[in-house]
Write a protein that binds this DNA or RNA. Sequence first.
RNA 1: GCGCCUGUAGCUCAGCAGGAUAGAGCAUCGGACUUCUAAUCCGAGGGUCGGGGGUUCGACUCCCUCCAGGCGCGCCA
Length: 554
Amino acid sequence: MKEKLSDLIFRAIERAKKSGEIEIEETPEIVLERPKEKIHGDWATNIAMVLASQVKTSPLKVAKSIIDHLDDKQHYLARVEIAGPGFINFYLSNAWLYDVLREIERKGENFGTCNVGQGIRVQVEFVSANPVGPMHIGHGRWAAVGDSLANLLTAAGYDAQREFYINDYGTQMSIFGKSVAARYCELLGREISFPEGGYEGEYVRDIAREVMEEEGGKYLELSEDEREEVFLERAYSQVLEHTERVLSEMGAEFDVWFSERTLHKSGAIRATIDELREKGYVYDKDGAVWLRTTTFGDDKDRVLIRENGEPTYFAADIAYHKNKLERGFDRLINIWGADHHGYVGRMKAAIQALGYPSEVLEVIIGQLVNLLRGGEPVRMSKRTGEMVTLEELLQEVGRDATRFFFLMRGTDSPLDFDIELAKSQSSENPVYYVQYAHARICSIMKFAEDRGFSPVSAEDALLELLAEESELDLIRKLAEFEEIVERAALSRIPHILTKYAQDLAALFHVFYTQCRVISEDLELSRARFVLARCSRQVLRNALALIGVSAPGSM
RNA sequence: GCGCCUGUAGCUCAGCAGGAUAGAGCAUCGGACUUCUAAUCCGAGGGUCGGGGGUUCGACUCCCUCCAGGCGCGCCA
């Protein structure tokens, strides 16, 4: 509709130019927007004000001239007005709104999908938590955002994949293994010094205890290094299992779990460094191997191989991103916590050093989640004992409310998550408001069925009977869905879906209060039934994108 | 010190490819169930959009500056 309208305006301006009323060289882009206030119409354009400053006449005259040359053959427009300082407001005819209902019915669960993605292959990498402890609340935010974003991209015509990068190599892992081994010895009464900076959470002791109960004290015989190795693997597989399970409970199913170790084993890191050296971006200094990231705007050059011969995390990450790109992705979207934002510059530099434009890598920097308990901050470090895990949160709050809550704010904003609040106010959570609207519609349908009501399709219904303000407002909101999906996907902002779902639910509740669906008037009931059914469809589609269920009753 | 993010109603936040009278939820106060679920609806009060400059016909939105808070600036991951 937007395109049709702007085309209509464009041709009106062309005709006005010919008639000599408007004298300009080139017609600027016509910007159409939805006014905040509905009394200003369905669409509005500022084109008259833009042109007026070029032609040096009053915007009102220009607007008048454009309107005079409008040729609305299809009768899309009910009314066109000049308002305020020179806005042209367009009021769409109801006939157009009724078409929206027919379209929703025709497209069903595909209503809202589009093809702005044009099949572009995009990979979304998110969560990627180190496998050294249970998933915490912060990971939940990235799981919700990443998974929903991938849903959105798919809906918008991208070919999207979800990937989890497992940082199963390096110092942190080693310390983790040492920590579990130390707890094991401790449980068996052998004094052993706990590693410096080790993981002190109770879960470490739990893993050690489990091994002890299953296999006794046989690992006491091993050397310290061997023991560390054994416990590292035990703990690793257990944590990974936990991670997969919890993410699955969150509703986030990954296509690929990529292990950092494979990069080390396969020699991919060396190969990547060699490639970069051939390209002339690598040099040796102070016994280490460096990448000249400053060539591509980084603050300083970065170490690839340490003095001790070990590759850095950065070197592995470059090999990883090279691997992704060689798998054929056109775009890589990484979701990182704000504590990694200083890393973006060097990674983009590395992408360019590999010979790709920096735009292929998009990094969404998400601000951190502040965990509160009754207003008091709770530390979320993996190393401190006191911690609330994502698993516990899911158990107490549920997937729907958890996901919805995590998606209610833009990723730029830090999120305060008060556990007490989430638990105690769970029935006041906006997610229930939206779900209730869906359940209400289901209830109407059940009622209709019980009464032997015979519904008809949107094609056969007398939709022009839908003329109440609350009915038309609801249809307008339904029509907006396609634009919302497109914008959310293109701008990578899944959180606007929660706002949309709440708005839509609110308009349905108003409609419900003001208009009885099943009444004595059969034709009116049929038309309203179509509207209710379409509302249910769009609510479902919106909730599906954010991974929240649409219950039939509550 | 430098970089990124944030600052909007009592509270939590939307709005920010510049647009008309700045919105919602919660909280407070007052109404609406013999009728498809009241987990709902209707109404009221509540604001120097952190401060100050600038660009513009027009700024919460863009630019500069200052203030406040968060995060980051490793041969850690």
